[in-house]
Design a protein around this nucleic acid. Structure first.
Length: 598
RNA sequence: GGCUCCUUAGCUCAACUGAAUAGAGCAUCUGACUACGGAUCAGAAGGUUGCAGGUUUGAAUCCUGCAGGAGUCACCA
């Protein structure tokens, strides 16, 4: 890569000219701003003091040395402390040919024998359907997995389903009480929606009971505890834990409905897992770890028998790990599942895609794993993301302001259909092809809209705006790809093969717009590596948009197929083909498909 | 109240490890279709990067304080 060569050259020159030792990777190298002449800019300020030169003088001396040392550098100029280097056109042209020859341009080859990275995401409760918040989670989880894979990692995607607990019992109880034996088949409802309906039903009747008790003079807190439905749900949970056959059967049946529903939603979202864990199988794990912690002296037992971890030295509180009755809590389970996962896959890194309301939990989890002596604890990474808000406020399931995942996808598909009809470009496609196209566009819009935002931030989801297929959106990039593919098809009809190598001697200089496209393409591997290090699909999304935009600008006023000079024409077609490939590859990381035509 | 995260154009978002005049899109205004796909492009306008200090040759970015927003501080998961 030329970037490394330049940094190395600067480092060598500093040593030779001023006897300064500078690590090449610390030399600040950036793309030259478009209002200045050049391709790469080196900031020389950091060396001014030690080299005892003025910035201009230093930059000029370095420029001469670098031009001498790196063959590709054709020229340089100096503005204040900025050294602008120009790279010869032939370098960029050969780069395009090389990229053309590699269909996986931008992706690293997987490292042989690398130990897996486990990404946990989704992790739904089985008492209600998935909503918009889950969509952000699923898209982030899938995309980060693809991103790490593109950067060469061996990724395993896992899901930990919360299939037990009081919330499931609430749905079960309400179904027994008010359900009249309703099933997904009899009602025509999707399984997860059916179970969710009874969860709401429970809440409704429970609230009524509490209200009645308060009317009779009971304190509200007491009423919430004493309401018959709540007591009954708690009793059901006890019977579940004792293995009561009737309860377990109902539990299996209703969870089965939910899984069928989830599978459908996952399928439509285009996400999946290498392994699914169920909490009913793992919730007893972690107790041996607590014993180990006690033996090591990093945990302690209180007089009532409960076990704690003292984190006051780390600036946190004491954290409970076993209740006084010896049962485990969330943290205990998570310690257990972390170890299980590490052992199952021989994983060197665990990544958890979980909302930022659990920042504290994962901070503690990491600390305790470290105290227990696991050296992989510091490679546990919590990919924390903010809430998705709506224009009219927060999502509240009780107020009916949640956006259901299935409904949302359907609405997006309907809108995609509407917009395609308006443009009327697809009259020759079969109904099946059209349906597929609407789906691809709908999901492209949804995924891009969510993934382009930095995960750390709360984001605003505006349904109307997300469905707009203009501007910085997924469909804009999909459109650009489809249009390029169309050009390449037409070029093939004219007998132009983009794979044929371009010879340097007959080429005209690159235009500014061509150069901009080539430069953006050239950045792709660096962007993917950097995005993977930062677990940031947003960086990839914004890059894809930059590339599409650069291409459209180039395309608009540059003849490609009407170009008279055959060499220039062939080069431009080749450039088109590489851009299409790069768009496809970056969008693949986001889980977005790009159509051949639309 | 303690701790964590967030605050950038009217709105939604960018800015890789500190670097040149902080960038896009939407909305607004002005131009460009006899065309390789106008679902596009070119341009205008829009900013004291929440506020006040500090470090630095250089700060949206690092440090301190303050204001506003969110989250968390369960023998829930």
């Amino acid at each position: 890569m030329i970037e490394q060569n330049l940094q190395q050259a600067v480092s060598s020159a500093l040593l030779k000219l001023y006897n300064l030792t500078v690590d090449p990777s610390t030399v600040v190298l950036q793309a030259t701003k478009k209002e200045f002449e050049g391709d790469y800019t080196i900031v020389v300020f950091p060396f001014v003091k030690q080299a005892r030169r003025s910035p201009e003088q230093l930059a000029n001396e370095l420029g001469s040395a670098v031009k001498e040392a790196v063959a590709e550098v054709s020229d340089f100029n100096v503005v204040k402390g900025f050294l602008n280097l120009s790279v010869a056109d032939v370098y960029w042209q050969q780069f395009v040919s090389r990229a053309m020859a590699n269909p996986n341009y931008g992706f690293c080859t997987p490292v042989e024998g690398a130990s897996p990275v486990v990404v946990e995401y989704s992790s739904p409760n089985t008492n209600k359907p998935l909503h918009l918040g889950h969509i952000r989670n699923n898209l982030l989880g899938w995309s980060v997995s693809e991103l790490l894979t593109a950067a060469g990692a061996n990724v395993k995607k896992v899901n930990l389903v919360n299939d037990r607990g009081i919330h499931i019992c609430k749905s079960m109880l309400a179904w027994l009480r008010y359900g009249n034996g309703e099933t997904p088949e009899s009602s025509g409802l999707k399984g997860d929606h059916l179970v969710g309906k009874y969860y709401v039903e429970f809440d409704k009747h429970y609230k009524q009971e509490v209200q009645d008790l308060v009317a009779k003079g009971m304190e509200e807190e007491e009423a919430k505890r004493q309401a018959p439905l709540m007591l009954e749900a708690q009793d059901m949970l006890r019977r579940w834990e004792e293995g009561d056959k009737q309860i377990r059967d109902l539990w299996s049946t209703m969870n089965g409905w939910v899984y069928a529903g989830f599978d459908e939603t996952y399928r439509r979202l285009g996400v999946g897992f290498d392994k699914i864990y169920y909490e009913s199988n793992t919730y007893l794990l972690g107790k041996e770890l607590v014993q180990k912690g006690l033996d090591l002296g990093v945990l302690f037992r209180k007089e009532d028998g409960s076990v704690w971890c003292d984190l006051t030295a780390d600036g946190l509180d004491q954290k409970l790990l076993l209740r006084r009755d010896g049962t485990s809590v969330y943290m205990t389970q998570d310690l257990g599942t972390a170890l299980l996962r590490h052992n199952d896959f021989g994983a060197e890194q665990l990544i958890y895609v979980v909302g930022n309301e659990q920042d504290y939990h994962f901070k503690v989890l990491k600390l305790i794993l470290g105290k227990l002596g696991f050296d992989w604890a510091d490679k546990v990474y919590h990919l924390s993301y903010g809430m998705v808000e709506l224009p009219n406020g927060k999502m509240k399931s009780r107020e009916g302001t949640v956006v259901d995942a299935d409904d949302l996808i359907s609405e997006m598909e309907a809108t995609a259909e509407e917009m395609c009809r308006d443009h009327g470009k697809n009259d020759d496609m079969t109904p099946e092809q059209l349906k597929e196209l609407y789906h691809i566009l709908a999901l492209g819009a949804l995924k891009y809209f969510i993934l382009k935002v930095d995960p750390a931030k709360n984001m605003l989801f505006n349904p109307a705006e997300s469905i707009d297929f203009n501007g910085n959106t997924g469909p804009f990039i999909q459109y650009t790809h489809a249009r390029i593919r169309s050009i390449v098809r037409k070029a093939a009809e004219q007998g132009i093969d983009p794979l044929s190598p371009i010879t340097a001697d007959t080429l005209l200089p690159l235009s500014d717009k061509e150069k901009a496209v080539v430069r953006t393409l050239h950045d792709m591997p660096g962007i993917i590596t950097s995005a993977a290090e930062n677990f940031s699909p947003a960086m990839v999304a914004n890059y894809a948009y930059d590339l599409a935009k650069a291409f459209n600008s180039f395309y608009q006023d540059t003849p490609i197929l009407r170009e008279a000079d055959p060499t220039v024409k062939a080069f431009r077609v080749q450039l088109c083909a590489v851009v299409a490939q790069a768009l496809k590859n970056t969008m693949h990381i986001l889980g977005i498909e790009v159509p051949e035509r639309m």
